[in-house]
Amino acid sequence: MYEEPYKWVEAVGNRRQYLDEQFKQGSPVVALAYEAGILLLTVSKGTPKLYEIYDRLALGGMGHPADLEKLRFSLLEMAHVEGFNRSPSDVTGSRMVKYGIAPVIKQAFEEVFKAPFIVKILLTELGAKAGKETFLVINYDGTFDEGSHCAVLAATKAVEQDMMKLLRAEPGGRSLEQAVGVALQAWALGDRLQRQALEADTDHGRESQADSASTDLASLSAYVRETVKEKTIECAVLDRTQPGSAKYRALSPDELGRFLPKDVRASLS
């Protein structure tokens, strides 16, 4: 049934539609550089979405937990075998993505008889020196982008662009506390845009979305306050100042509590 080329193209198109649908309710992921390294932040409902991959590599994911696990394990295997056989400095995010999982994701996406990976992946790598951070984003079809300073995952490209705009507007060299604040705002912006898009879908009406893209601090904080109550703010860093070779550290609830803006802290306790 897919022998004819146009049918195959159509099938891939359907698949894209199906996958886009799957991410609509996902929680966005934010990663950005701060003075001592890289911060990753998301808000989750139990299942963790941020992981340590290797000494200087961290992963954030969106999508189906089982698919994310599968890809997380292939990354872990690749990284550790390479780090052992060669050297930890040969384990780079760029190699993991380009020659490791991106081709696997692409293949699964295009094999229309099989199930695709329902995942979007963000891989961050701490460079040896400040300013040498790498951010890699892989889409469900295996396409990837490499950037510096910051990166996000969200349901659609449009939402991602709005979040990135907010992150880029902030000056560099932030402290961890500032970074947590900015990351939370970006998350709130993304999540709110996604939720409004969902509501617009279900209502079949075009609600005014003028305010949803607004980056007004007060309204974003208010949004965070009301949404995080029944969820967990998940936060991890790749911290250059950490002793030893492994630089990944998940922020404990206590530590995170200290960094959260006051009004959000109050709504959590």
Binding site: Y51, E52, F73, L76, H80, F84, A246
Partner: peptide, 16 residues
Amino acid sequence: VRILEHSFKYYRRTQL
């Protein structure tokens, strides 16, 4: 030592 170092890290990272 190299094997052990990688083993302990690998365990921690896979099993959380």
